[in-house]
């Protein structure tokens, strides 16, 4: 108490003066684009297994991903990110691949939980793919079984760093 200086009327007038005038922002294109893109990561409404419950909790009001500008989008055409939140069976893998192909570039993939990373407890199964990176290229791996919302946060902030490193000058590497 008492440590903060009380804002006076002059302070407010100063701010009003500053933003009242037309202003010019001089910045590199990469920086402003990446700032915009990394603060509006829209991810696909795509839940597979129990990790999806944690993903929903992360998007819900308690953990509240909305404050980072991240929202669920119900169509791959509008999504930047796909969170693979569960076991990928051999029958389901082509479906995931198809959804990924429908997303517009630049697109990012986050493998959430041990099933999506290596197959997890179902590694030796006859019907489980040993990791989503056998199907589509992955940017961020988040470990856990299932991954906690805090872990997913960490992964998404890592993804933000990856997006901030992107540039329009360099041609993006498309992994086939």
């Amino acid at each position: 108490m008492g440590l903060e200086r009380k804002k006076t009327l002059e302070d407010h007038l100063y701010l009003k003066d500053k933003f009242g005038k037309p202003n010019i922002l001089t910045v590199s294109y990469d920086k402003i684009m990446n700032a915009a893109r990394s603060r509006s990561i829209w991810y696909l409404t795509f839940g597979i297994a129990c990790c999806a419950i944690e993903m929903m909790a992360t998007g819900g009001s308690h953990y509240d991903l909305d404050r980072f500008g991240m929202f669920f989008r119900a169509t791959p055409r509008q999504a930047d990110l796909i969170i693979i939140s569960g076991t990928i069976t051999r029958k389901y893998a082509p479906v995931v691949q198809r959804v990924y192909m429908q997303m517009a570039e630049p697109r990012y993939v986050l493998a959430m939980g041990s099933c999506a990373i290596t197959g997890g407890p179902f590694y030796d199964s006859y019907n489980v793919v040993q990791g989503i990176d056998k199907v589509i290229p992955v940017d961020v791996y988040v470990q856990g079984c299932p991954a906690r919302p805090e872990a997913l946060y960490c992964g998404l902030l890592k993804l933000k760093e990856i997006i901030n490193r992107d540039s329009i000058v360099k041609k993006p590497v498309i992994v086939k």
């Binding site: 192909m101 199964s125 006859y126 040993q130 086939k176």
Partner: peptide, 25 residues
């Protein structure tokens, strides 16, 4: 071409490897 719930079933490692179909590329 296998029946996984039979007791005699034992899958080969090559069968477990997922081969990505090329239809979407």
């Amino acid at each position: 071409d296998y029946h996984p719930l039979l007791k005699s079933f034992e899958i080969k490692w090559e069968k477990r490897e997922y081969v990505r179909p090329k239809v979407f590329e």
